[in-house]
Every structure is written in structure tokens, then in C-alpha cells.
Computed example of a mutant assay.
Amino acid sequence: MKVAGLGFKSDVTVASLREALATAGGPEGLAAFATVSDKADAEALKELARECGIPIKAVPADRLAGIDTPTQSKRVAEKFGTGSVAEAAALAAAGPRARLIATRVVSRDRTATAAIAEGDGA
């Protein structure tokens, strides 16, 4: 199963999320979008999910903490205990043996990030 992890700022637009997702590889073949729980109800994310027909998986922040990610944001590491919300959420939602097939990419306006992981979904 393939999962796109999405990280974003509170003022993100659906266009920024769409751009980050497209740059990471697009929505084709995705089983879910994943993000940290406190952002799962964001209107822009819900709109993208409806547009793509893909469900949202909310990942508790404590499950993201400690997930080793290839890209690192100091701000994200201080807040969530992982280097990338997008990468960690994708890995957590795709299952225990998941691997990233697209590392974090950032929208041009820097409000959205996306990464894609593949795993067994267990």
C-alpha cells in the first residue's frame, strides 16, 4: 500500500498541497493521505482528499516522535521529535516495514510538504 504523508502550515491552500503531492509523485495508486492528528481536520486537506477520493489517516504525534527521516527540519524536530512530518506520517501509516519511495518535497510557497511511503499497511 502506498501512502502520501503531508505536512503543512495552518494557512496552507489546497493548491499548495496539490503542488507538493504532484511533485512527490501524484495521487495515483495511493491508499491514503496521512498527517499528524491535530492537522487531519484542516479544510485544505479535506478538500484535496475529496478531490482525489483518498481517505485521510490521522497519526498521533507521539507515533511520529523518534521516526528517523532522511530529511530534517529543525523546527519540526523540536515540535514533533522527527525530522519531517510528511515522511514520518507516510512511514507510520504505511506499516512497520514501510520505506520511503519519495522523500519530502516542499511547495513553492513553503506551506506544504509531501512524501510517499510504501508498505504492508499492517
Results as ranks from 00 to 15, higher is better:
F80W: 12
I67T: 05
A44F: 02
V59Q: 07
G53C: 03
A49H: 04
K46Q: 15
G81N: 10
C52M: 14
A49P: 04
D62Y: 10
I54S: 07
A92H: 10
A89S: 15
V85I: 14
C52N: 14
T82V: 05
A65D: 09
A89L: 02
A42T: 09
A42D: 13
K79T: 14
A58M: 09
P70M: 06
S37R: 11
E78N: 15
A93K: 07
K74P: 10
I56N: 04
D62S: 12
R50V: 07
E47V: 10
K79L: 13
D38R: 14
I67S: 03
L64H: 06
A89P: 05
T69S: 07
A90H: 11
A42R: 13
K79S: 14
K79M: 13
P55T: 01
A40I: 02
I54W: 02
K57E: 13
C52L: 14
C52A: 15
E43D: 10
A58D: 08
A90M: 09
A49D: 09
A92P: 06
P55A: 04
P60L: 02
E43H: 09
G53Y: 01
A93F: 00
A61P: 12
E47W: 01
D41M: 10
P70K: 12
E47S: 11
D62R: 13
K46C: 10
P55V: 00
G53K: 04
A65W: 00
T69V: 03
Q72A: 11
A90R: 07
L45D: 07
A88P: 14
A58I: 03
I54L: 08
A65F: 02
E43V: 14
D62L: 12
T71D: 09
A65M: 08
K74F: 12
I56H: 00
A61C: 04
L45R: 04
A49K: 05
V76K: 06
D41S: 13
G81H: 09
P70N: 10
P70F: 01
S37H: 08
A90C: 10
A89D: 06
G53W: 05
E51C: 01
K39A: 08
G66L: 12
L48Q: 06
G66F: 01
L64R: 06
G83Y: 06
E51I: 03
E47P: 00
D62V: 06
E51S: 15
S37A: 15
R50N: 12
A77L: 13
L45E: 08
L64F: 00
C52G: 02
A42H: 14
P60V: 01
L91R: 09
R75N: 14
K46A: 14
F80H: 15
T69Q: 08
I67N: 05
S37L: 08
I54A: 07
K79A: 15
I54C: 04
G66V: 06
D41L: 09
G81L: 09
A65C: 05
V76Y: 00
I67M: 01
A44Y: 04
D68Y: 07
V85Y: 00
S73N: 12
I54T: 04
A44G: 10
I56R: 03
V76G: 05
K46P: 00
R63P: 03
L91V: 01
